[in-house]
Design a protein around this nucleic acid. Structure first.
Length: 558
RNA sequence: GGGCGAUUAGCUCAGCGGAUAGAGCACAAGCCUCCGGAGCUUGGUGUCGCCGGUUCGAUUCCGGCAUCGCCCUCCA
């Protein structure tokens, strides 16, 4: 609808320019169509006349009038066009055109809302990527929900999307993990060895040690400590990673690829990358360490890639990792991180640029922290002491649907208060049920309709023009906006726009549904019933499609 | 001290440079002979943190200031 109108305005503008009634322009201005807040301002409006006013040296109202005079409307899309306010052109869509929206929704069904704006460009979305040194916690859950939904939204917008999890299965934190497990292992076997503060404190370390005792007995005490620690590290990391995969699967998040950091060392990519940088004089030696000239590319200072002790930093493998990503020829690379990593952005951007790519190729989404509450009171969390509420616990307590939905109900820029009690409430304070309820309700209506002899097929044979109440047209207008919402969500990389839109649609439906005196869907009037079934089943499709983008189920009964 | 983000109704938050800034919660009063009350209807609030700038037009963009959060290791 909007696209169609946009093309009409463009043609009118071109025609007006060709006629000489408007001064020639270097480039055709882009035509912004928006949905006015007030219905009195039409279904769509454009500010094009005001935008051109200064260049044209004429009153916006005059320009608007000229454009309108050049507009053709062969399809009778519009019922009224007017110039209003300081120079807006307001368009009123003819009522019968809205029925087309219902047909489109039904014809496209699960594809309704998708678009081609991505033109098949390849996008990689990397998210979660938590170290395999402990279970996922709520913060990772938010990143998982945001990343998975963004990927789905981008896919719906015509991008080819790959989801990836970067596994930090190398480096010091893995050694610490191995050491922690080995110490717990020794303790379990009666060795009263001290457990230091810098080891991982969580109870899951003890569980892993217990598994090792069951599996290996005392064997690890009889081999060199370094070897034993290494075995513990590999064992623990594998177990924890398996747990992470399982948790994410339960959360409905799947990845196309799990990329191992260690593989970058095994293949020599890290060393090769540093060599390459050295060859191009992008790294230098200083005080025994090797530094990357990130400062030359916008970072506040240079960064160490090889420490004085000869070990590479996390940053070193991350450069190699991003080099690998770049070589995989994605058109866009999106990294989703917790906001506490924001200081890392400039150095990654710097390294992208240093490797000869446009720094814009890699985009970053920084997801703010999650404050976990229970009944309004903060839940104590300390990773250091190993006390945190895991994603698994949250899913078990409030359910996957509520968790995913609530994680998406804030712009990722804002810190999120996640209240466990609220998430469990089946009331109007908890919006996820509000949406699912619409789906269940309409499902029930359709079921009742079938029982009364209205066959599914028959709805299409109804007369949509019987749908003509203002509330009904309002619902259709909302439905017409859905593809724009998805496209916008993709363009701005803002998944939260989906649940906000769906809440609005759900509210409009509930209001419609409740006025039974004039809106009874299934009645004795067969034609009207068929038409209204056509309307509400379209609502159901959109609710289902939107929830699907968020990874939230659309139940038929609740 | 430096960086990033935020600041909109009592609370939690939406808001694509546009016209009279919205929603949910909370509070109050109503609504089931009915296709599911996990619902609906009706009530009213705002110096859009402050000061400048750009613009025909700024809650929106830019700069400064204030406040809050996070970060600032040869940690990951």
């Amino acid at each position: 609808m909007k696209d169609k109108l946009g093309r009409m305005v463009r043609r009118a503008l071109e025609s007006a320019l060709a006629s000489g009634q408007l001064r020639p322009v270097q480039v055709l201005p882009s035509i912004g169509l928006e949905t006015p807040k007030t219905p009195a301002h039409g279904d769509y409006s454009t500010n094009i006349a005001m935008a051109m006013a200064s260049h044209q040296k004429r009153r916006p109202q005059d320009i608007a009038r000229i454009i309108i005079d050049h507009m053709g409307d062969a399809d009778h899309l519009l019922s009224k066009t007017e110039v209003a306010g300081p120079g807006f052109i307001n368009f009123f869509i003819a009522q019968d055109q809205w029925y087309e929206v219902l047909r489109t929704v039904h014809d496209q069904n699960k594809a309704y809302g998708t678009s081609e704006r991505g033109q098949g460009q390849r996008v990689q979305v990397e998210f979660v990527s938590a170290n395999p040194t402990g279970p996922l916690h709520v913060g990772h859950g938010r990143c998982a929900a945001v990343g998975d939904t963004l990927a789905a939204v981008l896919k719906a917008a015509g991008y080819e999307v790959e989801k990836e999890y970067y596994v930090n299965d190398s480096g010091r934190q893995i050694l610490t993990l191995g050491r922690s497990v080995f110490l717990r292992y020794r303790q379990l076997l009666g060795d009263p060895v001290a457990f230091p503060m810098d080891a991982y404190q969580g109870d899951y370390i003890k569980d892993l040690a217990r598994m090792l005792v069951d599996r290996e007995g005392k064997r690890l005490l009889e081999i060199p400590e370094e070897e034993a620690t290494g075995l513990c590290a590999t064992f623990a990391a594998d177990e924890i990673l398996a747990g992470i995969r399982e948790d994410l699967e339960t959360f409905g998040v799947s990845f196309d690829r799990w990329f191992s950091e260690q593989s970058l060392y095994d293949s020599g990519t890290v060393q090769a990358t540093i060599q390459d940088l050295r060859y191009r004089d992008l790294v230098y030696d200083h005080e025994g360490a090797v530094w990357f000239r990130t400062n030359k590319f916008g970072d506040e200072k240079d960064r160490v890639v090889v420490r004085g002790n000869g070990l590479t930093t996390y940053f070193a493998s991350d450069i190699a990792y991003h080099k690998d990503k770049l070589e995989r020829r994605f058109d866009r690379i999106i990294d989703i991180w917790g906001a506490d990593h924001h200081g890392y952005v400039p150095r990654i951007s710097a390294s992208i640029q240093a490797m000869g790519h446009d720094r814009q190729t890699c985009e970053f989404i920084l997801v703010q922290l999650v404050n976990l509450l229970r009944g309004g009171k903060p839940v104590a969390m300390s990773t250091r002491a190993g006390e945190f509420v895991t994603l698994r616990q949250v899913i078990d307590e409030v359910g996957r649907d509520a968790a995913r939905f609530l994680f998406l109900l804030r712009h990722y820029d804002s810190p999120l208060d996640f209240d466990l009690e609220l998430a469990k409430k089946q009331s109007n304070e908890n919006p996820v049920y509000y949406l699912q309820y619409v789906h269940a309700r309409i499902s029930n209506i359709l079921k009742k309709a079938e029982e009364r002899g209205y066959k599914n097929r028959g709805w299409h044979e109804g007369f949509p023009e019987l749908i003509n109440l203002p509330e009904e047209i309002h619902l259709i207008k909302l439905m017409a906006r859905y593809p724009e919402v998805v496209a916008q969500s993709a363009r701005l990389m803002e998944p939260h726009r989906i649940p906000f839109y769906l809440k609005e649609l759900a509210g409009a439906f509930h209001a419609y549904y409740h006025d039974r005196s004039s809106h009874q869907v299934v009645s004795d009037d067969a034609g009207l019933s068929a038409a209204r079934l056509f309307l509400v089943s379209a609502v159901r499709m959109i609710i289902r499609n939107g929830l699907a983008l968020m990874g939230v189920s659309a139940p038929e009964i609740m």
